[in-house]
Amino acid sequence: MLERLLLSRFRNHRETALEGTAQFNLLVGENGAGKTNVLEAISLLSPGRGLRRAALADVPSQQGDGGFGVSAALITPGGDPVRLGTGISPERPGRRLVQVNGAESPALRLAEWLSIGWLTPAMDRLFVDSAGARRRFLDRLVLALRPDHAAHASRLESALRERNKLLSDDRAPDPRWLDAIEQQIAEAGAMVAQARADMIARLEARLLDLPEAPFARPSLAYEPGGPTEPEALAQALRESRPRERAAQRTLTGPHRDELRVMMAGKDQPAADCSTGEQKAMLIALVLAHSQLVEELAKGGQGEQRPRLLLLDEVAAHLDPFRRAALFERLREGSAQVWLTGTELAPFDAITGEAAVWRVSGGSVVREL
């Protein structure tokens, strides 16, 4: 779990320190106070662009020098403390800096130390959003179980960019160069696709064990954007060159994967369900995934890493019955939970065991 968190020149937080954390950590304050900024800072202690997917240059405080820093003291399952830090310097605002115990490290290595998942109001539209948004959501789920997934996904993305550049060039690309790039896409892409398919299969099996209430139970299906074996994917890329040269982009591969979600009780596509039903399915998904990762870790099939759940305004639109059920499910797990809200009342069931901070104007004061 995170034992201590420091934010320096991060959005509206000039200098913020949170210490004395618990399993439940509640940030309370008015809209715009800086609650979600704290969650975003935590999310940057994992690979990727965080829960807002913001450009690094947009993160530093306007009153600062163009740089920012986020650091945390982490207690691992073995009890050993680890210091994690990330940020940018004013001199090189486009380059992300990462440190583990004071030594520089690639950002992808953060996944080896900490597993972070989140649920934000912006994700309420996940089922009607683009396929790319659902792929990013799925990759975050996979990363919680497989830290090396970030490296495979990064390698795939880089190779796809290079292939698309060649395909869109006025000159005909060298077939030998395409062969080499397509081999990289095939190798990394197969790893990514197979990890996604495995996660969906495991998660679907876990969801089948859950009741329909109090949260609507989703049913999941994986639709690959191409072959999922390296040799077959490489062959498909070779055969599709004429068509994709005309389109000037790659149309075959895991970057075209789709996560299909149905509401099990109605056998209805999630995108056609009500806003409340979509929210309930999303919560059910996140909770089932958290339980799955914990069960696999206990059974020796997953990494023993601290797990965090960041839940932004998750209780705002839940009735008291569903709020109580949510808190009980969270209490049963071992993940450290960070929640935000505009008032304490919806969290009465957990305030006696939670660390509570009042957030106002980018400052944080411990209340309970």
Rank of each mutant, 00 (worst) to 15 (best):
G69H: 03
L51Y: 02
A325P: 11
S71T: 13
E19P: 07
V365M: 01
A73E: 13
H317P: 00
R14K: 05
R163W: 07
A232Q: 10
T250Y: 01
M263C: 09
L56H: 10
L84V: 08
F215R: 06
P77K: 02
E91C: 02
G302M: 04
L156D: 06
E295C: 06
Q62L: 14
K279V: 04
G361H: 14
I116F: 09
Q248D: 13
G117T: 12
G299P: 10
R146G: 03
R307S: 13
R307C: 14
V142A: 03
L138D: 01
E91F: 03
P175N: 04
H13E: 05
Q62M: 13
R238A: 15
T252G: 15
V38N: 11
G66V: 06
Q235E: 05
A349E: 05
W357G: 01
V70N: 00
G117S: 15
P173S: 09
N37P: 06
S168T: 09
G48Y: 04
R146S: 06
W118C: 07
T86E: 03
D148K: 03
E204F: 01
L126G: 05
P214F: 06
K266N: 04
A284F: 02
Q248A: 14
S290C: 11
E30K: 09
G79Y: 12
W177H: 12
D209K: 14
A247D: 13
A41V: 15
